[in-house]
């Protein structure tokens, strides 16, 4: 599978919508969008590092980014789940409704938690 492109963010600000808690020691790069649906929360703990153009969208639950977690540029996290301590998510990774255990490393461009129907002839990127 070809690697998805990193898009330069169209805005350099960080957009926060809904209940988003960013701990003081966390770093959030420009162009990031953090949005929580009503009754959902996004919590970014101390020492977490959110790369450029990352998009986190909490729905039907909370998304928690634990301390020391590193999200590369252009990461997409949708739904609910916890990104554990010191997790390293490669750039352009997509995480859907999944928790990642502490200390895990995910390769760039991975697709985690996709429950849609697979087609036999294709190589599965991940599931």
């Amino acid at each position: 599978m070809p690697l998805p492109l990193i898009q330069p963010p169209s805005r350099s600000e960080v957009s926060i919508i809904g209940e988003v808690i960013i701990h003081e020691g966390a770093v959030v790069a420009p162009g990031t969008i953090l949005q929580a649906a009503p009754d959902c929360r996004i919590v970014i703990h101390q020492g977490a590092c959110i790369g450029m153009g990352t998009l986190i969208n909490a729905y039907q639950g909370d998304i928690e980014i634990k301390s020391g977690a590193m999200l590369g540029a252009g990461v997409l996290i949708v739904g609910q789940g916890t990104i554990g301590q010191n997790v390293c998510l490669g750039s352009c990774t997509t995480v859907i409704n999944t928790s990642i255990k502490s200390g895990t490393t995910i390769e760039a461009g991975s697709l985690v938690g996709d429950t849609s129907r697979q087609f036999p002839e294709k190589e599965s990127a991940s599931s």
């Binding site: 003081e24 020691g25 770093v27 919590v43 101390q46 020492g47 301390s67 010191n86």
Partner: peptide
């Protein structure tokens, strides 16, 4: 409320 600290990045900005 969050007091969790981590060995790795305890430098505050």
């Amino acid at each position: 409320d969050i007091n969790q600290s981590d060995y790795r990045n305890s430098v505050t900005s």
